[in-house]
């Protein structure tokens, strides 16, 4: 199948799902419940799915499990909150939303490039450790700094621009924008990995020495991949900040960083769609876990689920469904080692 055809088909299918799901919800549920699902569960799944996509992109095609993606999204969120008109307290202020969002995305790309440059000579588990250290360190910096980030309290009142006379945070408006962004980024990733750049990146993942011997600049490819992931995370960060009406250190702390990793792993690090599968599972779980188990012990529950997934299916829900499918069709399992 040619690339254009793949993208067209995936795009149509994605658009169909993203349009049909809300429609089905409106048909199946009373209006207020359907709006709750769209505004609180689907929108959240899309936002964090976008941020998780940046991690899944790096992990799947580059082999980098970066824990700094929540931090990069947070940098976009903070730059937006710092620069935009109307945010409380005023740190820099004075910019309209288009300009502020542009600066936020620029900042997230730069942050992604910086993370890539710092981690460029390390691999695997070292990369995980270094990016985690960066993420937690940035969190502690933000939490203790009042001048730039307003410390523990964070920056509030980032409402987003009005879209065609309707509030940005209106559930249907937000859902439309979030799903459009998610679909474009998802297709963008599928496109990118078929380009020469994407192919070189996957070659580097499999055998950096060989690709280097072929004349490719391995270091540059890796850093650029982190920059692209930074852009993806930044889009998610901007949306998350508007969704949460602001940003505070808690939204980029260790807990948030780990939650993002949980989403990606639970969904599956084998394909970009895993990011959205994982974030949807997480959002549903997050919303309804309280009624399944002790409300205060949500973390124990999510930790236990995460543990079980890692133990039985290291490649997440995607791997699980693939394995179930093979089992049902009675095919022997391939000898591929788990992730």
């Amino acid at each position: 199948m040619t690339l254009a055809r793949t993208l067209l088909l995936t795009g149509t299918a994605g658009l169909g799902i993203l349009c049909l799901v809300p429609l089905a919800l409106f048909l199946a549920l009373p209006e207020n419940q359907a709006l709750f699902w769209i505004g609180n569960i689907l929108a959240r799944a899309l936002i964090y799915g976008i941020i998780a996509l940046s991690l899944t992109f790096l992990a799947t095609y580059g082999g980098f499990v970066s824990l700094a993606q929540m931090m990069v999204a947070g940098i976009a969120g903070y730059v937006l909150a710092m620069t935009v008109q109307g945010a409380v307290p005023v740190i820099i202020g004075g910019f309209g939303y288009p300009m502020a969002i542009l600066m936020a995305l620029l900042a997230s790309v730069l942050a992604g490039l910086a993370v890539g440059a710092i981690a460029v000579r390390t691999n695997d588990i070292y990369l995980l450790m270094i990016t985690l250290a960066l993420a937690v360190g940035f969190y502690r910096f933000v939490e203790s700094n009042i001048d730039l980030f307003n410390g523990y309290e964070g920056i509030r009142n980032v409402l987003g621009p009005d879209i065609l006379g309707r509030r940005f945070r209106d559930p249907m408006v937000f859902y439309t924008i979030a799903s459009g962004t998610a679909l474009l980024l998802y297709l963008g990733v599928l496109f990118l990995v078929r380009t020469p750049f994407g192919l070189a990146l996957q070659g580097i993942r499999d055998n950096p020495r060989r690709i280097s011997a072929l004349g490719y600049n391995v270091v540059l490819h890796r850093i650029v991949a982190f920059g692209i992931a930074g852009f993806i995370a930044g889009c998610g960060g901007v949306l998350a900040t508007i969704y949460n009406i602001g940003i505070s250190p808690g939204s980029i702390g260790l807990g948030a960083t780990i939650n993002l990793l949980i989403m990606s792993v639970v969904g599956g690090l084998g394909h970009p769609v895993g990011a959205f599968v994982g974030s949807l599972i997480f959002a549903i779980f997050d919303t309804f876990a309280a009624s399944l188990y002790d409300r205060d012990r949500f973390n124990s529950l999510i930790g236990a689920v995460f543990l079980v997934i890692v133990l039985i299916s290291p490649d997440g829900a995607l791997g699980l469904s693939r394995r179930l499918g093979r089992l049902l069709r009675g095919k022997p399992k391939p000898g591929a080692p788990p992730a």
């Binding site: 695997d124 890692v310 133990l311 992730a339």
Partner: peptide, 12 residues
């Protein structure tokens, strides 16, 4: 990586 993920789950 799997070990790291397991220990993360445990720490939570």
């Amino acid at each position: 990586l799997r070990q790291a993920l397991v220990t993360i789950a445990l720490s939570i």
